[in-house]
């Protein structure tokens, strides 16, 4: 029964959603309720995630076997979570942008050419300090590491070992130069507008290949959905009894 009931629920829910596509007036009410349930379950997933994060990191910070650094990191995670939640609850998450403040840094000794404008001032501690001054730079810094890894990966992987690899690396180089102004600037010496070649590769050659992939994914999704509806695919309910 533990396995049959979830399979039955999956089949009924799936069929109802499909029927809603064909007969929206007939099944509108029940599918609306099902969608509300999905959104509510998604909201509870956040709570579950927070609980899991606390449990895992509490265990790590209390375990005597764990390295000291790991323990410190776990404590920082918990403290950050608690502090952010408390400050968010007290001050709210709505930003309070008050006015346009323009500062111009023009230090002749260090960078004579830098002129920075700070366009807004946010007085809410949550959005102004925690989100804009702590979380945003940290998140951006982590993502910017990608530039380093891409440069390193391109150096090691893009080698013209065969004809296919040659086409791949040529396309990559054309797209990379075609999407930035320096590409057109360099190739204007030879009378070539590389951005046009890049546009052709993306909008014609790439679009054709992407369309084929999308259609294949679509057909694959239909097959998997049918397998789920008819109970052939059971991986989503786990392996337990």
């Amino acid at each position: 029964m533990k396995r049959e009931l979830p399979l039955f629920i999956t089949a009924i829910t799936g069929i109802l959603i499909i029927l809603n596509f064909v007969f929206p007036e007939l099944t509108g009410g029940i599918t609306e309720t099902l969608r509300d349930w999905t959104i509510m379950i998604a909201s509870f997933a956040i709570l579950l995630g927070i609980l899991n994060l606390i449990i895992v990191n509490l265990r790590k910070s209390l375990e005597p076997i764990t390295h000291l650094e790991d323990r410190i990191f776990s404590i920082i995670v918990i403290l950050s979570l608690v502090l952010t939640t408390i400050i968010g609850l007290i001050y709210g998450i709505k930003s309070n942008i008050q006015s346009f403040v323009v500062f111009k840094i023009n230090n002749d000794y260090i960078f004579p050419l830098i002129e920075t404008e700070f366009l807004k001032r946010d007085t809410n501690i949550f959005t102004g300090v925690i989100f804009n001054s702590v979380y945003t730079p940290l998140n951006s810094a982590t993502f910017s590491l990608l530039a380093f890894f891409i440069a390193s990966a391109a150096y090691r992987a893009f080698r013209a070992k065969n004809f296919e690899a040659l086409i791949l690396l040529l396309s990559a180089a054309i797209i990379m130069l075609g999407r930035v102004p320096i590409g057109d600037y360099i190739f204007s010496i030879f009378g070539i507008k590389i951005s046009l070649i890049s546009d052709y590769i993306i909008s014609v050659l790439n679009a054709a290949a992407q369309r084929a992939i999308l259609i294949a994914i679509g057909i694959g999704t239909i097959i998997i959905s049918l397998k789920l509806l008819f109970g052939v695919e059971k991986s989503h309910i786990g392996k337990g009894d």
Binding site: I150, A154, Y155, R179
Partner: peptide, 12 residues
């Protein structure tokens, strides 16, 4: 982008 293209050329 230009630097990455230079790296690709050097690698080849």
């Amino acid at each position: 982008h230009l630097l990455i293209v230079i790296f690709i050329i050097i690698a080849n």
